[in-house]
Design a protein around this nucleic acid. Structure first.
Lengths: 233, 233
DNA sequence: CGTGAGGTTGAGATCCTTCAACAGATGTGG
DNA sequence: CCACATCTGTTGAAGGATCTCAACCTCACG
């Protein structure tokens, strides 16, 4: 149940661009637009989702369990959606989702999403591109995991973050280091040691603020590859 | 350029189910249906694809490079398509594809696929479910990689293969062991050692034929999890 | 029979994790 | 304002997992 203002805001989202007004109206019919504080769980592994979640602002961590182990699969920011695949296929979530940076989330009823998918080609095409992007994102992550050592992953994370924030050689870790460690597929202790090793390549660490004093040395170590690290490709 | 018979055969594929006849006609207009022998490369990393490939029979290995390393991302069989995400987004391939089991492949022109996506909701929905399935598949693989040891991955591969082939406790590796090793994210030597260790759990190896003499012991070791190992979820 | 490719085995190095202790920052209640 | 608890992150030592390198083995094939 959205207010008129919320409805206006929501309908301008990328995910609706090109869609028929009726489609948008149907999708927003039983929708919610909420702000969530940190640490709130928005979805749980193994449960079948009732809503497609679209991140308007903030950040959401997707993580998964096996036995007593846990790992982060990805961190989602605006304007991306999550648990999209589970909603499309009407199958249980493969991962849980928790807010790691206060977030505004648009929740679209799963049944409406599946209905719209078969009625509005533009919406279906948007969902397809959304899924294609997510697929490529996770493919890069899998390549990152299988083809690089943890130090290489860390170095490349740094290079990429720096590039994304204007190459001013000052990078801030936007969440807890443990989350970064899990995302990079290592244990927190190992992340510390990784940073310690990077000191030899001109990287200074002060809390969550990182300084790159020898960009060339770091790049030489990282050897970034567009087919793993370019966010746009 | 398909013969009448090939056209008939192709149009019955799952990927076209529910689509308008005009859509199917447009997609098959500049399509090819070919058989390819082993070792042929069907797509190359970093190139932008001209065709969407649908596997009718046989098997295709998707692999990727970084520096001098190579790894297998997945092995695709019928009736799945591959490099779908790159075609939808008109971006370079993140992986290469090679035939590892003589294959019959339907190739649909990429431009036609993108056109159909925006014109036929049923086709767009099919592509969306295709992508959603691929996304979940690779998500499971990433969980497998990040949450399990190589022995656990091997044990679970065995359990799953056995289940898929009728639980008769005789499993055949359908391709070279090196491919299996790469797929499981380990080096060939380590796969050998893995099998050697599994002997203690009642697994006998004769070439590419495997026998499971103590299914319970193997399951206890593997501890399969539906959210990683169930092909259907 | 040689030869070569795929697979196995062993020894050593490297990477990564575990466990334990400790440091620093933050918050709470007295 | 201080004593204490708690949480995050760091460091060290030890063990385990995985990889590298090299030798060897097996089998299909000319």
């Amino acid at each position: 149940m959205l207010s008129r203002q919320q409805y206006e805001e929501a309908s301008r989202l990328q995910i609706f661009s090109g869609c028929r007004p009726e489609t948008i109206a149907m999708l927003l019919e039983g929708a919610f637009l909420h702000r969530f504080p940190e640490r709130i769980d928005l979805a749980k592994e193994a449960e079948t989702p009732d809503f497609l979640h679209v991140v308007i602002s903030g950040a959401v961590e997707l993580y998964a369990h096996y036995r007593d182990r846990e790992t982060t699969i990805e961190v989602i920011g605006p304007p991306n959606s999550f648990i999209t695949a589970a909603v499309v296929l009407d199958l249980p979530n493969l991962k849980s989702a928790r807010v790691i940076e206060p977030a505004k989330i648009l929740m679209l009823p799963a049944a409406s999403v599946r209905k719209a998918l078969n009625e509005d080609a533009a919406f279906a095409a948007r969902i397809a591109t959304e899924l294609a992007t997510a697929y490529r994102y996770i493919t890069k992550d899998l390549k990152n995991q299988k083809l690089r050592s943890s130090l290489e992953r860390l170095a490349n994370w740094l290079v990429r973050r720096d590039r994304e924030s204007g190459s001013r050689h000052r990078v801030v870790i936007p969440f807890e280091k443990r989350v970064l460690a899990a995302q990079l597929g290592m244990v927190p202790e190992n992340l510390s040691r990784g940073f310690a090793t990077l000191a030899r390549f001109g990287v200074k660490v002060k809390g969550s603020a990182l300084e790159i004093h020898d960009p060339q040395a770091l790049e030489n170590l990282a050897k970034p590859d567009p087919l793993i690290d370019d966010p746009s490709s």
